[in-house]
Design a protein around this nucleic acid. Structure first.
Lengths: 213, 213, 213, 213
DNA sequence: CATGAATGAGCGTTCATTCAT
DNA sequence: TATGAATGAACGCTCATTCAT
């Protein structure tokens, strides 16, 4: 099922380093020398292993595709969880994934904006479609069960979930400053954010999906 | 009141072209020769007018600062509009601004991610703080009037507004495809999106701000 | 007799500023913008007044030609001064001229090395030949009078005079440091140097020109 | 003992070519493309090997430092050579070194004038101090032995040696023309000059250092 | 299998100069 | 007469990539 190849230690090192640097300085703002140096490998090794800088970027996305994909499918079928509970699962999984690989999520946002590389764009589109299908299906069932309202725009709901989380991650520095939480470590502040976001999004989803407030 | 200088025709041409290219290909992915060629000016003219590529970018942001800033302040004082009405004004103004300068909004998202240039980051932070203050003030008054709930997190609300709109603009291609609206022109699709977003965000704000659904 | 044109105030300002900058940073290391800015004139004015940066340099040399030229000719004919006295006059005049326009002398040294501009080289050659003729003539007369030795190489003598003085001017910083005279102002140190050089060169000339020590 | 690194063939080729071009056209008057073309290497190779144009210049000076340094130290201790003989050794060694690397000596003169690069200036100062110490020590011993006069200014003597030789090298074209020796090759003329300079400087040193003429 | 050496292409910038006014 | 605006050319340098070993 997985398209992920196995990467040896050096390849993994390069991928992780590149992901980090691309996310911090952008694709064009990062040189292969930067990556090679920080990853402790030879410059030529990047072309050698991945073919080119572009292919390296694509490999980063391929490697993380698995991660972006919502994994709640099996739980969806679990009848012991109600529809709102399943929505909560989705929200929490998304938040968890986004914050655990926040550098990659930043990178993904930029790549969508710049959309220079069609391969990457396809990967992003594919996984987004996939995730939307999961949600669409859940909402459809909820609607059939009479739990969810019939006039729900999944795209908008999806955008709010992705958009709000992305925006918080991207602007976390500013919001930490405004919140006066500069005394927290990044890790602590992220834990705090995750809780806030979870509650916030659940409130929004409930309001939009259900008949009552 | 405005800090904007006046730009002559060529300067304006360069600024608009650069904004467009930076937004499409990123700052580092755009060369000054790209800009010069597309703007129909000499390469040297960019340094001549703006000092450097970086300064050009900063000038783009300075020029648009005015635009990003919410201008509803005066309407806020208009007693003939109720609190929810004022919230709607804010939402619609933000959507209108974002879509009318969508390239700049994309650029702004990427610059926040990459955050290489502190001058630009400061501009973004400043205007975001400013806009949040407007909203905070309105909500505070609404709370005093007993119209709005007391447990409102403005940052989260703000992030949802900005994040949802940004996300729709960034992913508009994908969502147009999924919606099956590829027959619409970009302009027509954007009009459609704006309406959807307006309704969507108003629903969310109402749910979060007010006591009833 | 003089080929010097009259320069208006701005032209003089440009010439003096350029002479100083060329001497400090070299011809190619100085931009016309540097000169214009420091001289407080428009950039275009340099081309306007002097035709080009090269012509400006040539004009600097033309203006100073008069200054480099030894002016002892009339004194040479004064029978009340003996031959050694006349040699002393030459030495002191050269030292005085070199130190009073030390920036130009530095510039002259560099231009001889770089010898890119034939016009300037010609100017230098002409005035050097002229000055050597004065000395040659004096020495010839001194030889005829039996005061000076017959085996004198004027070129070598000339080189020692010019070379020693140039070298002291060029390396004055180092020599001031070595001499432990850093407490003196440049002006004071130059006065000191001039006296030392005068005595030193007179000693050398006497040794080489005359029969006794 | 030597701080000189070993330079491979291409590095040596670049260094020699650059030294020649810098000496002929000045540092700022020489482009890295000039050097690369004349040295038969790629432009990028200069940055690749030396880091920058400036560093290349510094490397040229580092490479020649060894050469400038007077190497008579061992001979100084040879008791079979008298003090005047040792002075002659110094003079001849200096002349030999200067003429064998005359391009570098020209370069050194210009760099002292322009003194833009402190690294290079330090190298020059260091080696000059070093060489002056050698001479100072010799003269001191000669004075103790009663051979040399007590009132000797080493700086002036040093300046005369360096200055005269430099001046002859810089103005060799003019002096060859005046001497009517244009039929000689540069090599032949230099041999001739070296002999003249040797005799001339020895005569000067003798006059200044010793009690008799 | 891995890499140091090397390179053509392109980068952002500065240059001396021109020209319309 | 004097100058702000503008420019083609060249600058030093970095880039991703190739290739012999």
């Amino acid at each position: 099922m997985s398209v992920n190849k196995d990467y040896n230690e050096k390849q993994g090192q390069i991928l992780t380093t590149a992901e980090s640097l691309f996310s911090e300085k952008g694709f064009d703002g990062t040189s292969v020398r930067d990556i090679a140096e920080k990853a402790g490998v030879n410059v030529a090794m990047i072309s050698y292993y991945f073919g080119s800088k572009e292919k390296l970027m694509e490999t980063i996305f391929e490697r993380r595709t698995e991660h972006i994909r919502l994994r709640v499918e099996s739980l969806m079928k679990d009848d012991s969880i109600d529809y709102i509970g399943k929505v909560h699962l989705i929200i929490d999984e998304h938040i968890e994934k986004a914050f655990s690989k926040f550098q990659f999520y930043k990178l993904m946002v930029c790549e969508q904006v710049i959309n220079k590389n069609p391969v990457i764009l396809d990967i992003i589109k594919e996984v987004k479609k996939r995730n939307m299908q999961v949600i669409t299906e859940l909402i459809r069932k909820g609607q059939e069960a009479g739990v969810f309202r019939s006039d729900v725009d999944v795209i908008l709901l999806f955008s709010t979930m992705y958009g709000t989380v992305s925006h918080m991650i991207i602007g976390s520095d500013l919001y930490r400053e405004i919140s006066g939480l500069t005394h927290l470590s990044e890790e602590e502040y992220y834990q705090h954010l995750k809780q806030l976001l979870s509650k916030h999004l659940k409130q929004i989803f409930k309001a939009i999906l259900t008949h009552e407030a």
